[in-house]
Amino acid sequence: MSPHDHRPPHPPEQGFSPIQRPTSTVFAPRRVGAIVLRHLYVLKSSVPRLLELAYWPTVQMVLWGFITTFFVQHSSWLAQAFGVLLAAVLLWDVMFRGNLGLSISFMEEMWSRNLGHLFVSPLRPYELVAAIMTMSFIRTTIGLLPAALLAIWFYEYNIFAMGLPLVTFFANLLVTGWAIGLAVSALILRHGLGAESLAWVAIFAFGPVSGIYYPIESLPGWLQPVAWALPPAYVFEGMRAVLFDGTFRWDLFGGAVALNVLYLGLAVVLFLRTFTKARRLGLLLDVGE
């Protein structure tokens, strides 16, 4: 090519072009507003997200309000409270981890969009339920064992000293966690991953009425029947009977078992019915928000 052969520059291509860096460096409130508006529309379209905004402050206020009220009215109880509070924290985490372990195991199948692939195989829905319950037990055990051992080292408190009653408390709270986790999983399957925050927040609604850190009798009179309709109330009252009086309350154990059988049965039925409907509607392949 001759050095005097000057050709016009190649005209820009028409159509789609790669995303270019914006030339303007001026702060644009309209762009900020557009992103905010996008998230407001997402928030507006998701009732669980809206409820979650007010949920945490309310639950924390109610729970710690009851704890404070009880300690103010029973100051002598503080002298014996150290071991009881540590046991309560560890046992509450059994229920929390049981619920979360089951819900997370189920949601991992949704996050990976694997539900449709699973049920092309001979897998049955009740087999999936059994599998995620097993995973919940494994996750809970792995999560809590180090904490229980560290409590011995840090605070010289051995929760295993409770012996066989500890096994019954662990089993009942784990089953309660399964019932809540299955109900939450059914809601997520029906309403999509926009409801996945329920896996973390639903369990805490039971905290104020479970008597974790205070006796059920310290609750307002109108709230006590609600507490006695839930298995954790029987477990934590039974735990205090073992630690304070050295007695295992068979009546409390029986109440927890009966309620757990009822609630777990209802949760399994709810999950299986929701699963059947989701498969009929094609929701197993459509797991978005």
Rank of each mutant, 00 (worst) to 15 (best):
S197D: 09
A278F: 08
W228E: 05
A131R: 01
K277A: 15
T134D: 11
I152M: 04
I216N: 05
L174N: 03
M61T: 15
P122C: 09
L285C: 14
F206Y: 14
R21Y: 08
A183V: 14
L50Y: 08
I104C: 01
W77S: 04
L43D: 05
L50Q: 15
G181P: 05
I104M: 10
A131F: 10
I138T: 08
W200T: 15
A205T: 13
Y55P: 02
F106K: 03
G163Y: 11
E13T: 14
V72L: 14
F16G: 09
L40P: 00
V257I: 02
A258D: 02
R280G: 15
V47F: 12
I180T: 07
L115M: 08
L166F: 06
G116W: 00
A205Q: 05
G288L: 10
L193Q: 11
R280V: 15
G33V: 07
E156P: 00
I67K: 04
A183R: 08
S17N: 07
L281C: 11
W178S: 02
F96K: 08
S76A: 14
P12E: 14
L51S: 09
F106I: 06
P146C: 05
A147F: 00
A79N: 07
S121F: 04
Q14P: 00
V201C: 06
T25K: 12
I35R: 14
A202S: 15
Y263R: 02
W250A: 08
R190T: 13
L198A: 12
L115V: 09
Y214L: 03
V235T: 10
L252H: 12
V242K: 02
F170T: 07
S218T: 13
E13C: 13
R31N: 14
T274G: 02
L40F: 07
Y234P: 01
W200G: 09
W200V: 15
S75A: 13
A278I: 06
P122E: 08
I203H: 07
S17L: 12
F71E: 13
P146W: 07
R190S: 10
F70D: 03
P29M: 12
G143A: 11
R190E: 10
A205V: 12
L187Y: 06
I104N: 08
Y155Q: 02
R249N: 14
Y126R: 04
V287Y: 00
F206E: 04
A28W: 02
L285S: 15
V120A: 15
L193G: 05
R113P: 00
V287R: 04
M61C: 10
M61L: 14
P29E: 14
A256Q: 01
W64Y: 11
D5P: 00
A34D: 07
L173P: 01
R139K: 13
H39C: 03
Q73V: 04
M239L: 07
I180V: 15
A148V: 06
V72T: 15
R249D: 14
M133V: 09
V26Y: 08
V89R: 01
G177S: 05
V209R: 02
L230S: 11
V89I: 13
E196H: 15
L174T: 09
N260Q: 03
F66S: 02
D93H: 14
L40R: 04
E289Q: 01
I35M: 11
A227M: 05
P8G: 13
T23H: 11
L189R: 06
L187S: 10
L285M: 15
S76N: 10
A28P: 03
Y213R: 01
I138L: 13
L43V: 12
V261A: 03
V26G: 10
P231W: 10
A179K: 00
V120Q: 14
G98L: 03
